[in-house]
Every structure is written in C-alpha cells, then in structure tokens.
Design a protein around this nucleic acid. Structure first.
Lengths: 246, 246
DNA sequence: CCTTCCGTTAGGCTC
DNA sequence: GAGCCTAGCGGAAGG
C-alpha cells in the first residue's frame, strides 16, 4: 500500500524518464474510441511501455482488458484521493481513463532491448524449405518463382513444374488445412489455368487435413501432401550443417 | 538491481501464494509448441497472473513477444548465476523458457477483481438496436428472426420484410464495410433466393463504405444504409429511459 | 471435441 | 495513407 502522492510522484517520474513501468492498484476504467467500454471497481495491473503503449490487465486471462497502442499521449491527474491516468490518441480518436482509488505498488525501469526475435516453424520457413528441397513436395518437383500474384487478391506460395512437366501450384499450411484453404488454392489454379490456357495441378502441403476439407478436395481435384513444419525445419537444419563446410 | 537469490525467493513466494507478479530483468527466451521462437539477450517484463497465464513483454509494442495461456505449469530453477522461469502446458504441448541473467525488480500482489466488464458499440449491440427499432434500417422494415443460418457457413444478422413486402437481408458492421462484406451478404442473399424462390434484397448497414467496395455493391445490387454504433446506442438509451417508467 | 465467426483485432506488406 | 492478408491469433457460441 502506497500513499497516493508517493505513487503519483513515482508515475510522473517514470513517464518523464520514458521508463517502462507497472502500477498495481484498485481502479475503475473507461474506454471510448473505435468501440467503448466500462469496467467497475477492482484490482489490476497497469503497464506502460517506453513507446507509450498502454496495457491494463486483470489478474486473469491472456488478454488485456483495455489498452492503447504505441504513441499515445499520457496524462496523470491527482484529484482528491484519486489518481487518474489518461492515455489518448488522435487518429483514430481514442481515450482510455484509469481512475485509481488505491495503489499497492509501482515499479519502473528503463529497459534496453535491441535483440532480434526470430520465429521458426512458420509458413515462411516451410516455403524456404520447399524452395531449397522441392522433394519435400514430391520427387521431381521444380519450383519456378517464389511467389506469383494470382489475380487481384492472394499469392501463390510456390509455383512450379512436376516430374511430368505439369504446371503445379503448391499451397503451404503450417496447421491442418481446412475448406477455406481448398477454395483458395482452387481459385488460384483456375485463374492461372485461364491465363495460361494449360491445365494446372493444385496441391496443398500441410501437416493434416480437417475432416470437412477432404470431400471438397476430392470434388475439386485438389491434391494433398503431408508436410509438417518440423520436417521442413529438419531439412533446413541439414542445409545449415552443409553451409559450415562450404 | 536485485541479488538473484532474493529474486528467486520473491518469485517462489509469489507463485506459492498465487499472486499476480511482474519481473523486470535481462533474459533470453525460447518457445516451442505450435510454433517455435528464440529471443536473444535483452531487458523485458515478465508478467504472471493468478490463473497462471504468462506474458513476456519487450519495452515496446502492444503485443507480448511470448506468452502462455491460463493454466500452465510453472517451474523456477536457479542454476549458477542464472534463474530459469519455465511455463509449460500439455495440450497442445507448449513450453516457454525465460532465462534471467539479471533481475532489476520483482513486484507481487494478490489482486481481487470480480467486477463486470461491459463493452458497448459492438455489432451485437447494433443488432439489438435494429431489432428494437427497425426504422434504423429503413421506415417500414420488419425483422422476422434474429438470426438465420445461411447455408453451411455464416449467419444473417437480421432477416425481415420491407415496406413493400420484399424479403430483406441486413448485414450489420460496426466499422466501414469492405468488399469481403459485400461478397458475404451477396452470398447469403443468393442462397436464400434459391431456397425460397423469391427475390431477396441485400442491405449493408454500416458507418461507411470503403472506397473499393462501392462499385462492387452497385454491380451486385447490394444496398447501403448509413448506420453508426453511436446512433444505435442512442436509440437503446432512449429505450432504457422508457423502461424506467414501465 | 470440432467448427465457425468476431475483435478497439495487431502487425506487416504493397500500392 | 488505404487496402489486404496473416496470426503460436484469443475468445465465444453452437453442434
């Protein structure tokens, strides 16, 4: 438990120094902007980052109950025995007000973090793997371009030629393929077929197929190849191993 | 700056007491599960909630760089001059490891928060408003069912009859309607038309129309009505005002 | 359990 | 800047 004037001082200092800070306290919350919300009295954690993004977290749940994206304007006002924290931005016009009646603790630190974040086992990595090791799709497959625009919207993941010389479109998914994916790749295939006047094979390469997608694939002549992010990663690791000796 | 053994003690106590706690510190991070990621050395905030959801935040950006949903298993291990925080869950199998080399601060509090959160100006509220005040769509409009399944996927927001007795489908959007929305409502209209063998009007009620959606609406005979969440809210407020006297 | 859709989606990319 | 797509999307509702 902190005296409100001490908390106010700590928060003002953290804002001035552009530190990342958290406030544990009892509050009510109002938000108005693209939508609008109210939150009655309760104890939460407020987090403010160095880029002035704001998060208000309840003591449960993955998601913040209220927030403000980076770059908002912050204002702190003491009014009697309350401390009001205001985060606003202009476009779109949004306003988040946290009204503290009691503050349990404040922690503030200037954080240094220039490190690179790298995500693996993404669709992007699967694509890299297939381009370097086309046999992951099937023996004799040869990719032609990394990506090919398929009409107004959407891109083809991998476009190439199979062992028999057929044009082949490959759609990669890191998770089980569903009906939407089937429609998508079928649409691409149709478009390219019209453009080039040749038959085009459509292949979905994914770890599995959702139950409801299987009949649709059959109906539209779309083919399925089992390919997991894990297998792609293993092939890429092999590649890196070879790089060491090159 | 905190001695690691003190930090360890504080964290263990917070975990044991099921408090909500934050850790400011220098760390590296690894995640493996549905996807996989690594994050090199830098200073961040770790947040652990009472339901054992875990968030790791960098000092910038709205989103956590890594996380774990509620209910994961937490383990803390001291190894030499490092403190390793581990959050794992079984299904799907996911593992998040935060390896602290330095801890700047720990804050922990048991938070009490049973308050109700209420969100306004949602699509749901617009629907309520239209059902109670159909003139928001147009004079003489009469809704028939709140929702109607439109084939295998998708629901019609409001289905009714206009002043001339025409079947009318209304699609509500709380934000500017785009081309996807036009395709969606047009698909619903076609389906119902086929089913009932009668012409069906398709209407999108939204605050505005994206530039690229306008020609598409004209082409497919979909109509536009300007309707804002704000206006809906005003009508609902009027309703509540009347309720006071009933 | 699976499937579907909404979100103050956020974030990234292209035009 | 507007439009478009993806996500470890999360969350809710329905079957």
């Amino acid at each position: 438990m902190l005296r409100l004037d001490q908390a106010e001082e700590a928060i003002r200092e953290a804002v001035a120094k552009q530190q990342t800070f958290v406030v544990f306290g009892r509050c009510t919350v109002k938000y108005q902007g693209r939508s609008a919300s109210t939150l009655a009295d309760g104890e939460r954690v407020l987090i403010v980052k160095q880029d002035r993004s704001v998060l208000l977290h309840r003591p449960f749940g993955y998601e913040p109950v209220n927030w403000q994206p980076p770059g908002c304007t912050i204002e702190v006002t003491a009014s009697g025995d309350h401390l009001v924290f205001l985060a606003a931005r202009a476009r779109p016009h949004e306003r988040l007000a946290v009204d503290f009646s009691d503050i349990k603790g404040v922690g503030a630190h200037r954080l240094q973090d220039e490190a690179e974040f790298s995500m693996h086992a993404t669709e992007e990595e699967m694509k890299r793997a297939v381009l370097l090791h086309p046999q992951l799709v099937e023996e004799g497959f040869r990719p032609m371009e990394e990506e090919r625009r398929a009409g107004a919207s959407g891109f083809i993941d991998v476009f190439g030629v199979d062992a028999e010389g057929n044009l082949t479109i490959v759609e990669l998914k890191r998770r089980a393929a569903d009906r939407v994916d089937v429609h998508q790749v079928e649409g691409y295939a149709k478009k390219v077929q019209r453009e080039l006047g040749r038959r085009v094979r459509a292949v979905i390469a994914a770890p599995s197929l959702k139950r409801t997608a299987a009949p649709l694939m059959k109906a539209h002549g779309v083919e399925f190849r089992c390919l997991t992010p894990r297998r792609c990663r293993d092939f890429l690791a092999k590649e890196q191993g070879l790089d060491k000796f090159s």
